[in-house]
């Protein structure tokens, strides 16, 4: 909440001009009949998604030529302005594509095509969820045409339906960029940026996967991987041959595992400043933080404990030097 939220936004002002124009005059509204398609030597596919009782429904018509190409497309829609406008753009995007290509159209593609300029969303986030149903109905039409199940288009688990972001992508991005918050995930992937159902339980729609859980589990996995890497490094006696970054990670993992909790209990902490390998010794420079900084044992007992742990787990020629 802040100044810009006090009056809230007026829903229709948030629609792009394109949404307004297409709602007022949809260009591909209508039906294609079996007879028309047959007369052209083409096949007609008609698929529904949604229902009146859930507030939005769309019927998609595809006329498909023998080469799998969608040569004409129309729609009918029970829905609000954004539903009608987005259905219109969806048919537009389908025309000229093969069925196999059309399956790749996402709700985001539709929303982008409705934008007046690339930076400004065409509809407010909560409308993405209920009124942009392109992907679902396309998938259905394609499955009818190809005679396969809808699931067969899903080569992965989709966590965010609005932006079509998969579980694999989210896990990868968390690991690669060391993401720590759901907001960061949204910034990097757009997942959770639209209807917000996939962020945590209790949104518009129940989901199988939620970003909060994925984040927690992935972070846990990352920690475990780090531990395992450190343990491997130590036992294999490889520490001396690691790059500096690997060394720091390995030391950090050991500190996390065996040392940090005791420092924190006493109201302190430590950080690794540098590691210098002179051949004879590996010198690890550390800085004490909080209560450890200047406490009596920081140059005696605690230091000894840190050093002996690292020696045992990583390499015998380690020296720990507080600065």
């Amino acid at each position: 909440m802040a100044k810009n939220d006090i009056l809230g936004e007026t829903l229709w002002d948030a629609y792009s001009d394109k949404v307004t124009t297409l709602m007022n005059n949809p260009t591909h509204q209508g039906e294609i009949t079996e007879e028309t398609a047959a007369a052209n030597g083409n096949k007609l596919i008609v698929a529904d998604f949604g229902a009146e009782s859930c507030g939005d429904a769309v019927r998609l018509y595809w006329e498909i030529d023998p080469g799998d190409k969608i040569v004409n497309s129309k729609f009918k829609s029970f829905g609000c302005g954004t539903a009608i406008a987005s259905s219109d753009v969806m048919t537009e995007l389908c025309i000229g594509k093969t069925v196999q290509e059309a399956v790749k159209i996402t709700n985001i593609d539709v929303e982008f095509a409705l934008r007046d300029n690339p930076e400004t969303p065409a509809v407010p986030p909560q409308k993405m969820h209920c009124s942009v149903m392109a992907y679902d109905v396309i998938k259905k039409a394609a499955s009818l045409y190809l005679g396969v199940s809808e699931e067969s288009f899903e080569d992965e688990i989709i966590v965010c339906e609005c932006a079509r972001v998969s579980l694999g992508t989210i896990q990868e991005v968390i690991k690669l960029n060391d993401l720590k918050t759901v907001e960061e995930i949204t910034d990097y992937t757009k997942a959770g940026g639209f209807c917000k159902s996939c962020i945590k339980p209790g949104g518009h729609e129940d989901r199988e996967w939620y970003l909060v859980d994925i984040l927690e589990n992935t972070r846990k996995e990352m920690d475990e991987e780090k531990m395992a890497a450190a343990a491997d490094a130590g036992s294999a006696g490889e520490f001396a041959t690691m790059t500096l970054v690997q060394k720091i990670k390995a030391v950090d993992a050991i500190i996390d595992e065996s040392v940090r909790q005791f420092l924190i209990m006493d109201g302190g902490d430590m950080e690794i400043i540098d590691i210098k390998d002179s051949g004879e010794y590996i010198d690890i420079y550390i800085r004490y933080l909080g209560a450890c900084n200047g406490c009596a044992s920081s140059s005696t007992g605690t230091l000894y404990a840190i050093e002996s742990t690292l020696k045992e787990k990583l390499a015998q020629n380690i020296r720990v030097l507080p600065i």
Binding site: A47, D48, F49, S53, A57, V58, R59, F78
Partner: peptide, 19 residues
């Protein structure tokens, strides 16, 4: 769509799947 004449291809019907 409630007043559309051409009906879905068999298997293309829908029930309420969104909220």
């Amino acid at each position: 769509s409630s007043y559309a004449i051409v009906q879905p291809t068999p298997g293309g019907e829908a029930s309420c799947e969104v909220h």
